[in-house]
Each structure stands twice: as C-alpha cells, then as structure tokens.
Design a protein around this nucleic acid. Structure first.
Lengths: 348, 348
DNA sequence: ATGAAAGCGCTAACAA
DNA sequence: TTGTTAGCGCTTTCAT
C-alpha cells in the first residue's frame, strides 16, 4: 500500500486500475485470474498499475460473485484448565501455516460446549466459509454428520471411529502404533513388566493407544494382567494409580496415554524417592511442553502435526476443486522422543 | 437449516423470504436490522418465514454493501518448540469466546516471521477484516504503526512501550505488580534474600517485571546486589543460573519472569536434593500448564486473560462504531496462584 | 485479445 | 410503515 494513503481514502478498484491502465475492467480481472489470456505487453502494463496503486481485489465482491470465501472454519473450544489442549493449539498453528500457502485463512468460531453442532450452521448458511476442519471426532462425529447431510465440504483430524462406512476425507495418527513404540522402547531398555495408564474405556483414542501397549506386551510374551488401569486424564489420578501399581516391585515402567498421566507418574516417583529412568521408566504421549520442561524430561510419543496439517490442506484443496478424492483416508505414524525418564545409565 | 435440504440447493435469499412473506425485500432487511421500524404483525410474519426457510443473510453481500465483515484479524505465529506460547494460545481461546458474543469471528493469518508487517496489508486492502488485534507489542509496534498510518482500527494486547505518546487503544497486565506480588509472597513466608531470574535487558516486559521485584525488595529494605540475573527464556539457562546463585546459602528464594525459568529452578533444586517450598521458594509467571503439572506444583503469577479479552472486545466495539474511545488505555492486575513451591510447612 | 452487459445478495436513500 | 431504485466490486457470459 502506498504509505501515504489512508484507509479512509477510497480503495482502488478494478475500475480504477482499468482506467489508469487504459484497458477495460475485464482485462484487469483477467490479468489477475487468467493472465495467459492477455498479450504480454498488456499484462505487464496492468501489473505495473496494480503495483503502483497497491490494488488488492475486494474479497467480499469476489466472494459474492464466485461463492467462495477462501476461509476455512475451525471450531475452537474453550480454554480448559489443567487438561492440555496443547496438542490442539500446536495443530492450529501448523494449520494456519499450511492453509496460508494456498491462500486460505482459518476462521475460528465458538460454539456452545453442550451442543457439538452449534456454530457450523450459521457460518455455512452465511456462506462465510468454504469448508470446515473438524477436530473432535473422538466424541463421535455429530458435526461431520451434519455437514455430510447438507453437503458441505470438510476434512476431519481423526478417523471416523463409530462409522467404518464413512467416506469423508480424514487424517489421523496411529495412536496404537505410538503406544507400541513406547512399550517396545521400555522393554528394550530392560523393563519387563510395563504398566499402562490410560483413559476411561469410553475414549476411542484411549482404547486404541491401549491396544498398542497390549500388542507390544503380547509380542514380548508378557501377561498384562493387573498392569493396565483406566483413569481420568489428570495428574493426581495418575499419581495415585502409580503409587498403587508400584506396590508391586516387579512393576518398573509405565506407558501412558498422555503426558499429563506420565507427569503424574513422575510425581509418584518423586514422593517415593525413586529416580525416573534409573529406577522406573516412564513414557508419556503428545510431546507437550510439559514433557519437555518437567524434571528430568519425559520421554513421549510425538504426533506429526505439521504433516497432519499439510495432508488436511491437501485434502481440502482436492475437495474444494470438486475433484474426486482418490485417497480420502490418511494414517500417519507418530515417533518417539526419548528423554531422561527412560534413560537407565548414569551418563545423565 | 432444514435437515432435508442439501448444500447444493439454492440458499434462500432476501427475495425468497420477501416473496414467501408477501412483503418487499427491504422489509425483510429491516426485520433483520431495524425491527423497530416494522409493525408487530409484519415482523412476526417475516420472522416466521425466516425461521421456516432457515434463512441466514449472505455475509459476502452484506459485507460488500456495508463494508464491514465482522471479522477480526489476528496474526498467529508459528508454533515454537520449548518456549511457551501457551499464554498466547489461552488468550486466543478467550478472545474467540468474547468476540462471539458480539457476532464477530477471529481470522487467523500467518506472516513471514522475519517481517512483522507481513499479512496485515493484504487482509486490509481486501477488506477481509474490520480490525486487528495485535499481540506482540514487546517487539516494538511496527504493525501498530502501519495500521495507524493507514487509519485501520486495531487494539493491542500490550502497552506501547516505546511510544508514550501513542493514543491507540490497548489493554495490558501490570507485570511489575505481578512480580511484586510474587516477591512479597516469598518475603512473607520467611525468605529474606529473594533472587530474580529474568530475561535479557532488551525485553521491555522483562524489565517491567524485574522492576516489581526491585520495588518489593526495596520496600523490605533488602539490597538486590548480585541477586538479579538476566538470561534467555529456557529451562537450562535457569537451571544453571539457579545453581550459581544457590552457592550463596543465604539465597533461599527465586522470583522468575516466566514459568519456564521457574521450572528451571526446580530442576536445579532436584539436582541439589533441595525441597521446593520447604528449603527454597520458587515463583513463576503466567500460570501455564507447566506450572500446574510440574512437581510439586509451581506458584505462579496469573494474568487475567479472560478479562483482557473482554476489555479488548469492548474497545474494538467502540472503535468500530466510530465512537470516541474515552478510556483507550486499560491496565489489569494479575493475581498470585499459590502452589507447593512456596509452601514451607509440611502440611503438604 | 479485449470490451460490454448482466447480476451475485444485500442495504442506504428516498418515495409513497 | 412499506416499497422502489440504485449500486457496492467483482466475474461470467457473450460479442467484437
């Protein structure tokens, strides 16, 4: 923008540019959207005027005409204390980056916490967004169902747990694989009886991760009897569960469904005077800030959120250009970030 | 939306509603925007048809006409590992909630990290947003300067550190007051020599917080010689600085410019076999998730982010209705959240 | 390769 | 109190 022009001055429009360049409005529009239709010298001239005037097409007008806003809706839940939506936040950052590359923006909207559908409707009917990204498929997929019903485009972060027949595009991370990595790592560094701290059975994500632990234990030929517990996702519940499990001296390692639970185990160790890593191995899940900063560092399963965002944008792009999605379901693999909570030697 | 209608069907427009209700388009528009102009029975009839058809005004058309998008722009920085933009994330959550109440949405946009101005321009010229919220005033206020220059409305979270003559609306939290609360708390529970772990001198926020510590120490009549250090905001730097300061046995407490630094101190204590709270008191800043989950719990200064968001939306509202802002500068006060890192007794 | 005309859905201004 | 007219800035025909 020319630095001397104030916002209150009239913005240049297609007409302004056209007049200044001595061409018709349509030619300017073509210079923007179909440059290959213009003769080279015309194109150059128009572009020069556009730059000179600092012209940017009016989004509202374009949107009204093309019925496309280049906005992607994302329902943003209330900040919840204690439990970490840190993963969600990190995902949003990566999503903003990824959508920017295709000229899209993310529109955040709030919804009544008791109504998983609230907010979608209005944005959609107002043609304010082109598509949605849905992140809470763990709670079933009411929003996805709604959008499917009205034929609105969307992509979910999270597989359709309750509906294997669902055909919508989604991206997810193999939680079971992550838990398996965690458990195998603990077995490798010499722990035999690895306990599992997971969420209530109602959580599909939680049960998926637990299955990974069970698979790794089965592969090692170790029974999981009495080693797996289901608790709510908070530090104190994990701390108490860990205390209980540690009454059995053969239990020397914990794989957990979240960093919150892993940190709870670290609390129990601190209270018992046990050394993380050396005496008892602990692995969390999500590689949150907490895992990174907590003493002495919590080994954790990290989701490739950057890649998730890129895949989602790719799917979004395909869906929005009305192409057929050839590969609507994409499962990514997490990795293990090793920190001192699983280092046994004293080269610490 | 009537559940049976698909998105591909034509959306109802003003004209549809008008025809169905047997009134003119303008009357429907008035029913929406100036209901007091209509006779009661007309209004009721129009509203009934609106509900029946599931009509929502097209945002693009409205925006084109009124030149107002009801979108607020917020530049969203890349996810940074290790250092916590957790405060920023929590703020965004509260902002989404607060703006929703006035019918606005938050548009996130990315910008080249090396160019603090990148992204604003385009959104503005495209008339895609009505206003901006700026959050990184600590880095000077280049974005605010740009927006002032072009006459675009904005509110900042953060005072104009480098320009006391700035007249734009802003909301901030008194960091010095927070550090003072932290220091006074440590003095009250019986520590005499309270050290300060803060950021480099270039950080205005950091120096502000430090000033609060100095004020509290001065009020207690204690010299701060050799007790204040300036380091980068990461756990390890704090850990090492704490080790150094703890060589002096009279140093028994730390007030810190961030939770990250506070957690670094906890690491040093763990390595020295000192008990947080009992032997050494530690206070962090921001009440992040880390402070809440780290063992044994980190006392921290909490910013009233919900209130910040509410004040910002209020200012935004005033600015956007072209009213004069009577009180453009609003300073809020943080509070202290006490956890076990400052509890001396053993009722722990 | 370029231009003219029409219209997306809405609201401001005015008329009845 | 309600209706009519015009036009926001753009792109999609269609004509040149």
């Amino acid at each position: 923008m020319s630095p001397s022009r104030r916002h209150s001055d009239p913005q240049p429009t297609l007409a302004t540019v056209a007049e200044r360049a001595g061409v018709s409005r349509q030619t300017v529009s073509n210079a923007l959207n179909n440059p290959e239709l213009l003769r080279e010298d015309t194109l150059a001239k128009v572009r020069a005027v556009i730059a000179e005037l600092g012209y940017t097409p009016n989004r509202a007008a374009r949107q009204l005409r093309t019925r496309s806003s280049h906005m992607i809706g994302l329902r943003f839940e209330e900040a919840q204390e204690g439990t970490s939506n840190a993963t969600m936040d990190r995902f949003v950052h990566t999503l903003v980056e990824a959508t920017a590359r295709t000229g899209h923006h993310i529109v955040l909207f709030a919804g009544d916490p008791d109504d998983p559908l609230d907010g979608y409707d209005e944005l959609l009917r107002a043609t304010a967004v082109d598509a949605f990204v849905i992140t809470d498929t763990y709670a079933g997929t009411p929003a996805a169902d709604l959008l499917s019903r009205v034929g609105a485009p969307y992509v979910t972060f999270g597989r359709p747990w309750d509906d294997p027949s669902a055909r919508h595009p989604w991206v997810d991370v193999a939680g079971a694989h992550g838990a398996r990595l965690a458990t195998e790592h603990l077995l490798e560094v010499g722990h035999a009886r690895v306990a599992w701290l997971g969420w209530e059975a109602a959580s599909r994500i939680g049960e998926d991760r637990r299955a990974g632990w069970e698979a790794a234990m089965a592969a090692a030929g170790t029974s999981t009897d009495g080693l797996g517990v289901r608790i709510t996702d908070n530090v104190d519940a994990a701390r108490m569960a860990a205390h209980e499990l540690l009454e059995d001296p053969t239990v020397t390692a914990f794989a957990c469904a979240s960093d919150t639970l892993g940190i709870g185990v670290l609390h129990a160790l601190a209270e018992r005077g046990l050394r993380p890593g050396v005496d008892v191995g602990v692995v969390g899940f999500d590689d949150s800030l907490g895992a990174q900063v907590t003493w002495p560092g919590l080994t954790s399963v990290r989701q490739p959120l950057e890649q998730v965002a890129i895949e989602i944008v790719d799917l979004l792009h395909t869906v929005l250009s009305h192409k057929t999605v050839t590969e609507p379901a994409r499962m990514l693999e997490p990795t293990l970030v090793v920190r001192r909570s699983t280092l046994r030697d004293s080269a610490r």
